[in-house]
C-alpha cells in the first residue's frame, strides 16, 4: 500500500507547485493507473514516492514506512522501474540482475529460479550474457523490469513500463501485473496509453497541473461519464485545467 497525505512540492526557482496537496491511497490487491497530461506532475509524484525527489509538505508511506524518516526500510518495500531504460549499459544483463539482487539481499536460491522463469517469459534469457548496451530498447526495458522485481517486493511502481516492449513482452508484463495484484499486492503504473489502462486498471488517479482531479475505480469514472470513452473522459477532465 502507498499512502500520500497532503503532499506538495515546488521545484527551486519556480513559483508554481509541481504537486499540490495530493492525498491519495494506492490500495493492495489492485492495479492502479496514474494518468495526466505532460507536465502534470506524474513523474514528480512517482519520484517522491520512491525517494528520488524530496517532499516539501506532507508524508508518503509505503506499507507503513515513511519514505523520509524510515527511508531504507521503505525502499525495500517496492520495485521502481523508471521510464528511462538506458541505464547500467556497460554491465551484462546477468551482472546487472546479480547486482540488483545483492543490493536488495536476494539469496542465490531465490534469484536463480526467478531469473530463469521470468527471463524465459520475457524471451531475454539467452541474451543475458550480452551487455545491456547491445540490447534493443525493448530488451533493455525488460531487463530493468526483471532487475527491479528480482527481490519480489509487494509494491510495484512502474513509470511507462510498456514503452518499447514488443506485443508478447507487453502481454507478459500485463499478466505479471494481474498475478501480482491477485496475490494481494499493489501495482502502480503510469501510462499515456489509455487502452492499456482500460484493460488493466482496477482504480485510477488522474492529475493535472499537480492537482488530483479524480481518484477511484474505473467503473466509477465511467459511470460518471456513461456515454464517453476513457479517452474522451480524460480529455474532458484535463482540458478545463
Amino acid at each position: 500500500m502507498i499512502e500520500l497525505t497532503h503532499v506538495s512540492k515546488t521545484y527551486a526557482g519556480k513559483d508554481k507547485k509541481a504537486v499540490d496537496d495530493l492525498t491519495w491511497k494506492v490500495a493492495d490487491g489492485q492495479i492502479t493507473g496514474f494518468f495526466g497530461p505532460n507536465g502534470a506532475g506524474k513523474s514528480t509524484t512517482l519520484k517522491m514516492i520512491c525517494g528520488v525527489n524530496s517532499i516539501d509538505e506532507g508524508t508518503i508511506k509505503i506499507n507503513g514506512h515513511d519514505i523520509v524518516t524510515d527511508s531504507i526500510e521503505a525502499k525495500r518495500q517496492f520495485a521502481y522501474v523508471p521510464d528511462d531504460p538506458d541505464r547500467f549499459l556497460r554491465l551484462t544483463g546477468i551482472e546487472y540482475l546479480n547486482f540488483m539482487a545483492d543490493v536488495y539481499g536476494t539469496p542465490a536460491e531465490r534469484r536463480a529460479p526467478f531469473i530463469e522463469e521470468y527471463g524465459k517469459r520475457f524471451e531475454i534469457y539467452d541474451s543475458l550474457s550480452s551487455r545491456i548496451s547491445d540490447f534493443s530498447h525493448g530488451m533493455r526495458q525488460k531487463v530493468h523490469v526483471l532487475a527491479a522485481l528480482i527481490h519480489e517486493p509487494s509494491v510495484w511502481i512502474l513509470d511507462e513500463p510498456m514503452l518499447g516492449l514488443d506485443p508478447k513482452g507487453a502481454y507478459e508484463l500485463k499478466e505479471m501485473m494481474r498475478e501480482h495484484a491477485a496475490r494481494g499486492h499493489s501495482v502502480l503504473f503510469s501510462t499515456h496509453v489509455l487502452e492499456t489502462a482500460d484493460q488493466l486498471c482496477d482504480s485510477v488517479c488522474i492529475i493535472s497541473h499537480g492537482r488530483k482531479l479524480f481518484e477511484g475505480t474505473l467503473n466509477e469514472l465511467k459511470a460518471a461519464h456513461p456515454t464517453s470513452s476513457l479517452e474522451e473522459i480524460f480529455l474532458e477532465m484535463t482540458e478545463h485545467e
Binding site: D102, A108, S129
Partner: peptide, 19 residues
C-alpha cells in the same frame, strides 16, 4: 546487437554478495 556474446547458460547466477 545482443548476438555478440555467447548465449547465456544460467551458470553465472552468483551467491549473494555483501552490498
Amino acid at each position: 546487437g545482443a548476438g555478440s556474446a555467447n548465449a547465456y547458460d544460467g551458470s553465472t547466477v552468483q551467491e549473494q554478495a555483501p552490498v
